[in-house]
Design a protein around this nucleic acid. Structure first.
Length: 259
DNA sequence: ATGGCTTGTTTTACAAGA
């Protein structure tokens, strides 16, 4: 079973690359973030033509998340939004149960708020969102869970190209990292780091200043698994080829192969 | 490296991203 997550920075602008991704990897689950779609404009028809169905939580101009799976898998028990999240209209959390050959897997696609700056009101909303996430996840981890998306937190300095440059910035603060630690402590494994304890690899690079070519990036897109599923993980990798070529997202997709 | 690209929109300027 192949699981994936990808912040596409507009599903409309990235549709050709997303179809290319589905054709190349044929994932059983693809979590999308920053779809920047409305419910009406979500490209269900184009995905269906590629053999995939999707459930979306769409907020229009910004954010937006979705879960995509092959049409032959069932996709049900959909939950849109997170109880006690500060701005429910922003469409940052969706849950669904994906069943392949009768084996159910609970899946979450999440797009954590950016936070802008430590002294910005948006940062308090980011922390509240993370608290709401921890609260909900405590219940979800009782069953097999794949919780994936753009956490907008680099878990450790090893996940940051220049830790000194990020001191005093969002994505690396103690307030954010302690909440991510609580999320993991609720019973989830950071799959990439579990399989690659010493590897330095990123999932996001700024569009500007040739940062991708200089490999100046952050690892902020995570695929989290409950321990029984993590034990079944054979491979976990970041497909940098989708950060290259025509009209790339500024994030690369993360792939997780389960036995 | 100081927002240097990229996206969408209440477009021809601005907001947001990380």
């Amino acid at each position: 079973m192949l699981l994936a997550t990808w912040n596409v920075n507009s599903l409309k602008a990235r549709l050709a690359r997303v179809l290319e991704f589905l054709d190349t990897h044929r994932p059983d689950v693809l979590c999308l973030q920053e779809t920047k779609a409305s419910s009406d404009s979500f490209p269900h028809t184009e995905l269906k033509d590629a053999g995939y169905s999707a459930v979306d939580h769409s907020g229009g101009r910004w954010a937006g998340v979705a879960i995509v799976a092959p049409v032959e898998h069932s996709l049900d028990h959909i939950v849109r939004g997170l109880a006690s999240e500060p701005r429910p209209d922003e469409a940052r959390w969706i849950e669904a149960t994906v069943s392949a050959d009768g084996n159910p897997l609970r899946v979450v696609s999440v797009y954590v708020p950016n936070g802008r700056a430590l002294d910005h009101p948006a940062f308090q909303d980011k922390l509240k969102f993370l608290d709401a996430m921890v609260e909900r996840t405590t219940t979800l981890v009782k069953d097999p869970l794949f919780l994936a998306g753009d956490m907008n937190i680099a878990p450790a300095d090893a996940d940051v190209y220049d830790p000194a440059a990020f001191r005093g910035s969002t994505h690396t603060s103690a307030a954010e990292r302690s909440r991510l630690s609580r999320l993991l402590a609720s019973g989830l494994v950071d799959t990439f780091r579990h399989l690659e304890p010493d590897s330095t690899q990123y999932t996001w690079w700024d569009y500007r200043a040739g940062n991708f070519h200089k490999n100046l990036g952050l690892r902020i897109d995570l695929g989290l698994l409950t321990p029984d599923l993590a034990r079944r993980c054979q491979r976990c990798g970041i497909d940098r080829s989708f950060r290259k070529g025509p009209k790339p997202s500024d994030h690369a997709p993360l792939l997780i192969q389960l036995s």
